[in-house]
């Protein structure tokens, strides 16, 4: 990777860097996930909940690096953040609490309904909780409005699963980039 491109990627806040044997490697979120890189803002439990929910909503979200994507974008400046939440009237100062509040409420819901963490739910159990979050305001939910939270994380998961060259190919749609993105995100 040439120097300009590396600088471009770093400035754009889309990659995660790791120092290995004196060499800085730049990784896409999916690669960072595979490499087990630590997250900056989301806790391990929040990431596990996020991955389990989005996997139930948009299959493929976990492997595509949904946690790394959200975590990285939350850590970026407002100008560099690529989150769709920017469009939806939530000020950036509230982005982290938006995700954390929704994930906390979702985790509490899994415990109250099934006595489990999201990552331990059977797929049918996860699906029933997704339906509850998507269509209603579950009792005890104290995060952002449940249906809105669902819409946002579903969009985020659609971004990482379908919004890439790989994702287009998976649904048979030509990507046809004028300028290919240097990295998916």
């Amino acid at each position: 990777m040439d120097k300009d491109r590396r600088q471009f990627l770093r400035n754009s806040g889309i990659v995660l860097s790791i120092a290995v044997a004196g060499e800085v490697l730049l990784l896409s979120p999916a690669q960072a996930r595979a490499a087990g890189l630590p997250l900056q803002l989301l806790s391990a439990q929040e990431a596990a909940t996020l991955e389990a929910i989005t996997e139930a909503v948009v299959p493929g979200a976990r492997k595509a690096g949904i946690s790394q994507y959200i975590d990285k974008q939350l850590a970026a400046s407002h100008e560099e953040s690529l989150l769709m939440l920017k469009y939806l009237g939530v000020p950036q100062s509230d982005f982290l609490s938006f995700y954390q509040g929704g994930l906390r409420s979702a985790a509490a819901l899994a415990h109250s309904r099934f006595g489990k963490n999201w990552s331990e739910l059977a797929s049918s159990e996860a699906a029933s909780l997704v339906t509850a979050i998507a269509g209603t305001q579950p009792e005890g939910w104290d995060g952002p409005p449940a249906a809105f939270f669902f819409f946002v994380i579903r969009s985020d998961a659609s971004d990482v699963v379908y919004g890439t060259e790989e994702g287009y190919a998976a649904i048979g749609m030509p990507y046809m980039a004028h300028i290919a993105p240097p990295e998916p995100w």
Binding site: V58, Y87, F151, Y162, G163, Y168, I171, M173
Partner: peptide, 22 residues
Amino acid sequence: LKPNDLLGIANTRPDIYGPALQ
């Protein structure tokens, strides 16, 4: 149309999820 984003295909039917979305 593109697959993702606010006006993308996935968000035209926010009521569909799981395997049915694929």
